[in-house]
């Protein structure tokens, strides 16, 4: 499932940043997907995540922080979702 959702980010000139599309994925599955993707990274590596507003935006960023990672940027998207860049912690 992770592999299917991991795509290359071809849009913003940073093709090396993997993207986890969690739109339409409920809690806590969305967090598990992000967690699995983060495990593929080395500390300091970055990952983009698309999250729906509401519960996913309330829960996932907080859980990511509790696990020792950091949300670096938050960008609202046209479809009402949010694109988060996460830097992998330890």
């Amino acid at each position: 499932m992770t592999a299917r959702r991991l795509e290359q980010n071809a849009s913003a000139g940073v093709p090396e940043v993997p993207l986890v599309d969690c739109r339409g994925v409920a809690c806590p599955t969305n967090f598990v997907l992000v967690k699995l993707a983060l495990e593929e990274l080395d500390p300091g590596g970055v990952l983009d995540v698309l999250l729906d507003e509401g519960q996913p935006m309330r829960n996932v960023p907080r859980s990511v922080k509790e696990d020792g990672h950091r949300v670096v940027t938050v960008e609202p998207q046209e479809d009402g979702s949010f694109r988060l860049r996460i830097r992998c912690g330890a």
């Binding site: 935006m57 309330r58 960023p61 907080r62 940027t73 938050v74 949010f82």
Partner: peptide, 10 residues
């Protein structure tokens, strides 16, 4: 100004 707190506040 990332707005995460605004999103988190129910």
């Amino acid at each position: 100004g990332c707005t995460l707190c605004v999103q988190a506040c129910e």
